[in-house]
Amino acid sequence: MAKTYKRPESLYDVATHYCAGCGHGILHRIVAEVIDELAVREKTIAVAPVGCAVIAYDYWKFDCAESAHGRALAVATAIKRVGPDKVVFTYQGDGDLAAIGTAETIHAANRGENLTVIFVNNAVYGMTGGQMAPTTLLSQKTATTPLGRDAKLAGYPLRISEMLALLDGVYSAERTSLSNPKEVLNTKRAIKQAFENQIQNKGFSIVEVLSMCPTYWDKTPQESVRWIEEVMSQYFKLGKLK
């Protein structure tokens, strides 16, 4: 019988440290499958963020640099500029990409760096214990918005992908989610496209992926995927932004 589903070569055969129902495991696998399918594992360099995915290199079987919080796109810019034949991507959370790293994000995008950006939006800081993220929804309760996010005090959830889509330097921007199998496959398609864009020297491509954090949403995994579909994706609309 033919084997139709196997572990990607780009993924180590180890258990991840992620919580039950977390989206990172799915997304790591998607990235590994895409790298395998494009046959670029041996020239791929990942830049891991500060956040839950900081030890992504324990799961991915290709070269990887850690970066300081928010600086992933500065690090990736240089790696790609000195190695234009390499396939370079960043994998960043919402705090990393859209709060502490906002300047690095906007300027790497504006320079049109030929990079692939995988932006994991789960509306919360996971690693540090569930604090408010720039993408936390209004009235969403977190460790630092115990009464729910109040726009008067903490501003609005940041749609940074829409902002980036306005920049001339950005080639493509798309928002997907991990909330059901169909969307998982769609996320894989978008990520593969974003890597192909880089390989074809098209320029800066970002895929924002709405991902579950049951632990800090205080929800079950089932409630979490439903929350993405019924609440989160109402504010962060899925689809091609550019």
Binding site: T77, V82, H107
Partner: peptide, 26 residues
């Protein structure tokens, strides 16, 4: 070589981090 005028000092030193991690004198 590669010259980049960065958006900030933070970006500049982290670009050096990336180039150096790639084995290039930076």
């Amino acid at each position: 070589g590669i010259f980049i005028q960065s958006e900030s000092e933070l970006a500049a030193i982290n670009m050096v981090f990336g180039a150096s991690a790639s084995g290039v004198r930076s």
